[in-house]
């Protein structure tokens, strides 16, 4: 074994093989191992691990809290949506009811007005018909008179003497009646 340092030269005398099996160095290593490990254990157990554990726990709790809040907000939103849906449906039914009512009312009003107008028109038509009938009778009466006069003058001209008024009237009346049939 070729050695570089004087410290190593002293060590090399003890063992010719692997330095790992040099019993003389065991106590020192174990001593430092115990000291260093004890310090590390103390630092980990008292300082580092509780702190990291609490950080992770805080984060998990925050995430859980956030998720819960999100769930709650989601539920609230869903409930609000349902509520809104309900309100909308109610409004729609109400609106359609109002529309139907007003349509019915308008139809009824129209029908009433139609009826009224129909009645008035009927009366007017009846009056007009009556007037027509009156005029017709008067016209017919005039016609009879005129026919009588014409027949009188025609008879007197043809016969050279005035006709018997009673017989003439009866004949004219019969002729007009036959005409008007």
């Amino acid at each position: 074994m070729l050695c570089v340092g004087p410290a190593l030269a002293a060590d090399a005398e003890h063992s010719s093989g692997m330095p790992q099996f040099n019993i003389n160095h065991f106590p020192t290593q174990v001593f430092w191992l115990v000291v260093c490990f004890a310090v590390l254990y103390f630092l980990m157990a008292k300082l580092v691990l509780p702190r990291i554990g609490s950080i992770i726990e805080t984060r998990e709790r925050a995430i859980l809290g956030d998720l819960e809040a999100a769930q709650k907000a989601n539920d609230a939103a869903r409930a609000a949506a349902i509520e809104q849906d309900k309100t909308l449906t109610a409004a729609r039914t109400e609106a359609s009811g109002i529309i139907r009512q007003s349509a019915e009312a308008a139809a009824a009003q129209t029908a009433a007005k139609m009826h009224e107008i129909g009645g008035k028109l009927g009366a007017d038509i009846a009056a007009a018909e009556q007037r027509i009938a009156e005029q017709r009778t008067s016209v017919l009466a005039g016609l009879e008179q005129m026919a009588g006069d014409i027949a009188q003058s025609v008879f007197s001209k043809v016969a050279g003497r005035p006709a018997d008024p009673a017989a003439l009237t009866a004949k004219v009346a019969a002729a007009v009646k036959g005409e008007s049939r």
Binding site: L2, G5, A7, D11, A12
Partner: peptide, 11 residues
Amino acid sequence: MASPLEQFAIQ
């Protein structure tokens, strides 16, 4: 050349 075991020596 140094022995490959030299690196394990306790100093």
